Simulated assay, not measured.
Amino acid sequence: MLKEFKDFISRGNVVDMAVGVIIGGAFTAIVTSLNDNLISPLIGIFLGKLDLSSLTFTVGQATFKYGAFINSIINFIIVAFVVFLIVKFINKLRKNEEDSSAAPDQSISLLTEIRDLLKENNK
């Protein structure tokens, strides 16, 4: 069982996923800090309150913290936009690799042409 676990954990996908989760967690902390310390106060200037997370309303004994929800939405939009940019960049790199690998090397084209001419002359 220990060997199976070692085989499982040493697979490339699992390690890549673990690195992605760790970096994603760190990135989320950065985005949260950006939102809490820069974006929310900026929005708060226009709303008249500097701390969006303190925006609440009460119905009966229930308190609804809609300001914290707004902060979470802002965090999500920032993270989603950055992930979109990363995926777009990676897709562009992959497309460039495919385009460069799809075009045959000039020497290969010349050698193929010479081969075809030799075949025609030998017939």
Rank of each mutant, 00 (worst) to 15 (best):
V59A: 10
T63S: 11
G48L: 08
A103W: 03
I22M: 15
E98I: 12
A80L: 12
L42T: 14
G60F: 05
F81M: 11
Q106A: 14
G12P: 08
D116T: 14
P104G: 08
K119S: 14
N37F: 05
I114N: 11
F76N: 10
V21K: 07
I77E: 10
I70W: 01
V15S: 07
F64K: 02
L38C: 01
K92I: 08
V15C: 02
F81N: 04
L85E: 06
T58M: 02
I86S: 05
Q106P: 00
A103Q: 13
K123R: 11
A80M: 06
F89I: 12
I22Y: 12
L47W: 03
R94E: 12
F57P: 04
P104C: 05
M17P: 00
Y66I: 08
D51N: 14
L2C: 00
N96L: 14
L118K: 15
L117E: 15
K65Y: 05
L34S: 06
V31E: 02
I78Q: 04
K49E: 11
N75W: 05
R11K: 15
R115T: 12
V14P: 02
G48E: 05
V31D: 05
A18M: 09
R94N: 11
E98F: 09
G25E: 06
I78G: 01
I74N: 06
L50Y: 05
G25L: 09
N122L: 13
E98G: 03
G20H: 10
